[in-house]
Amino acid sequence: MTGVHVSDNQPALPFRADDPAGTTAPAHQSPRPQEPDVHLTIFLQQMRFDFTACLSAALEFVHEQQTHHYADDVTVDLHDTRRYPRLPNERLFLRP
Rank of each mutant, 00 (worst) to 15 (best):
V4Q: 00
H5M: 03
N9P: 07
P11T: 14
A12F: 00
L13S: 10
F15I: 05
R16L: 00
D18Q: 10
P20E: 00
G22E: 05
P26H: 02
H28V: 08
P31C: 07
P31S: 01
Q34G: 07
E35A: 02
E35Q: 03
P36M: 06
V38K: 02
H39Y: 03
H39C: 10
H39S: 03
L40Y: 06
L40V: 11
L40S: 02
T41F: 06
Q45I: 07
Q46V: 01
M47I: 13
M47Y: 15
R48Y: 10
D50N: 13
F51A: 03
T52Y: 01
A53E: 06
A53V: 02
C54Q: 07
L55Y: 04
L55I: 10
E60A: 04
H63W: 09
E64N: 11
E64D: 12
Q65Y: 08
Q65D: 15
H69C: 11
H69N: 15
A71S: 12
D73H: 13
D73R: 15
V74S: 08
V74D: 12
V76H: 04
V76L: 00
D77N: 14
L78D: 14
L78E: 15
T81I: 08
R83Y: 08
R83Q: 11
R86Y: 10
R86A: 15
R86W: 08
L87F: 02
P88H: 12
N89A: 12
E90R: 01
E90P: 02
L92S: 15
P96I: 06
